[in-house]
Computed example of a mutant assay.
Amino acid sequence: MSLTMVLLPVFVQVGLTFALLLWNRSRATPADAADEFGLPTLFYALIALALPLRHADLVIVLLSWVFVVTRFANAGLVSGAKDSRQRGLAWLAGVLVLLAMWLYFALKMLLLL
């Protein structure tokens, strides 16, 4: 079985997870803990796939750092500020960066770049 055929369902599941995260977030309260575990799990899974497949290039590393900075911003806003709008923006920034990382990785794998 080709690597593409094995990874395609993973990419579809990741897409579904992002869709549900964004859809549920629009209806959830800022204190919703599920997102706090969902995003890092998707991040860890991406890195766990990219490393052994030798696709953890400079783009992935730079986006990883941007993602981690957004998580720090979100964590700071969670523990300090009560402004749910700022926390929501930090969370959304992390989601968009992680989504960009997954799209980049999926395109590299599926198009064999």
Rank of each mutant, 00 (worst) to 15 (best):
M1V: 10
M1P: 11
S2E: 09
T4H: 12
T4G: 03
V6C: 08
L7V: 08
L7E: 10
V10P: 03
F11P: 05
F11C: 04
V12I: 15
V12G: 00
V14C: 04
L16F: 12
L16I: 14
T17H: 08
L21I: 08
L22E: 13
L22W: 06
L22P: 06
N24Q: 15
R25K: 07
A28C: 09
P30W: 02
A33Y: 11
A33T: 12
A34F: 14
A34T: 14
D35G: 06
E36N: 08
G38H: 02
L39I: 00
L39P: 03
T41M: 01
T41N: 05
L42K: 04
F43C: 04
F43E: 03
Y44N: 09
Y44E: 11
A45F: 04
I47R: 10
I47W: 10
A48M: 03
L49S: 02
L49D: 02
P52H: 03
L53R: 09
R54P: 00
L58E: 11
V59Q: 05
V59L: 07
V61L: 06
V61E: 08
V68N: 03
V69F: 06
T70H: 02
R71Y: 03
F72H: 08
L77G: 12
G80Y: 09
A81R: 15
K82E: 09
K82N: 13
S84A: 14
S84V: 15
R85N: 13
G88D: 09
L89P: 07
L89S: 11
A90F: 01
L92M: 07
L92R: 00
G94I: 04
G94C: 03
L96Q: 07
V97T: 08
L98Q: 05
L99C: 11
L99A: 13
A100S: 15
M101D: 00
M101V: 04
M101A: 00
M101G: 05
L103A: 13
A106F: 05
K108Q: 14
K108H: 13
K108A: 13
K108W: 10
K108L: 13
M109E: 10
L112Q: 15
